[in-house]
Each structure stands twice: as structure tokens, then as C-alpha cells.
Amino acid sequence: MSNTQFTPSITSRPVYPGLTSLGNVPAIMIADASGQEALKELAAADSSVMDQAHVLLVTTSPALADKLQDLRPASIETVSDLDAAVPSFERLLSTAKMGTQLYLAGSEGLIGFFSARALGSGLPQEAIQSEHRGPISRRMQCVHCKGVTEDVTTDPFTCSHCGLTLFVRDHFSRRLGVFQGVCVDAEVPGEVPETEEIQP
């Protein structure tokens, strides 16, 4: 499996060009179970990329961390979900210096979630690399109630906070790291198009 190819869309839609090693420089790497494959390939291409890399692995399976340990990163930590990764990530960011690279690999939700936090801490956009691996589910924000629904795979979908039926847009908020969902039957309540699987 390799980097997912998405259909070209509006400028707002993030693109994930894939990871390329910048060599032995200070780095933070975050991956989920699918994304850790991309980290392995990155290290296979240039093992020095791991010398100063702090890895956060978002997974419920600790066995994956053991495998990554073989790549000899500077440190590695396993966390169960995105929110659980925040304290460690913020700690790494607070001591990081200009020149630090952020490598993100995995779902769109993961990439958006950590990009937004990194940008908020002042990490320049140009220092963030990303590669999409695994399912193409999205983190969607309801533009009406502002609640975020995780792992959305269908269009339209039901907002997990306010219950509105939302249309999945490619409009993305970099600041929040979420796609925007807009009420699909605002004109004629109840007139809802057929539900489809989200396509890449």
C-alpha cells in the first residue's frame, strides 16, 4: 500500500505529497497503524532521518511500537487516540527549535489534527510533510453547531452533535484541521440525496 491518490479538488482541500527524508535533523513523527508503514519506508530510504526523531504512534496495539523501535528513533511513545497524543505532542513542540520537521502519516483526521496544532504553535507550514495511508474517512465539522464528527465515511452523514444531515464538502479549515459539513436539506427539510460512500 502506498500514498493515497485523491481526485484533484478545490485549493482548500489539503494534498499529501508523501514523506521525503530531510536527513539527520530534529524531527517529530506521528503515525497511526496504517501510517507507520510510511515511516518504515522513509527510514528504509534514509536511516539517518530517525537519528533525531521523536515518534508518537497512535494505536491500540503495542506490538507495532516494538517493530518501529528497530528503526532506532531518538524516542518512541504509544498513545491510544488523537486526544491522548496531545500532551506529549505539545511538550515536544514547546522545546522544539526552528528547523524541526514534522512528518505525519496516516488518516486525513490524524494529519489535519496535528497540522492544526503544530501551526498554532508556530511551526511553519513548510516544515510539515504528510502522507495519507489507510481509510479515507474524514474529520468533519458541522458549520451549524461547530461539533466535530470523527471517521465520516458517507456523504451525506448525520452530525453526531446536533443531528442535522450534512453534506461533505472539500472545504477544509487549516486552523482547526477539519473538513466543513453543511446542512444538506436546509431548503426543503427532509429532501436528502441518496447516501454514498466517500470517494478518494
Partner: peptide
């Protein structure tokens, strides 16, 4: 001087 600057500098 430049090696020791925080993110967002």
C-alpha cells in the same frame, strides 16, 4: 543565534 530559536520565529 539561529540554531536556538523557538518554533514560529
Amino acid at each position: 543565534m539561529l540554531a536556538d530559536q523557538p518554533l514560529g520565529c
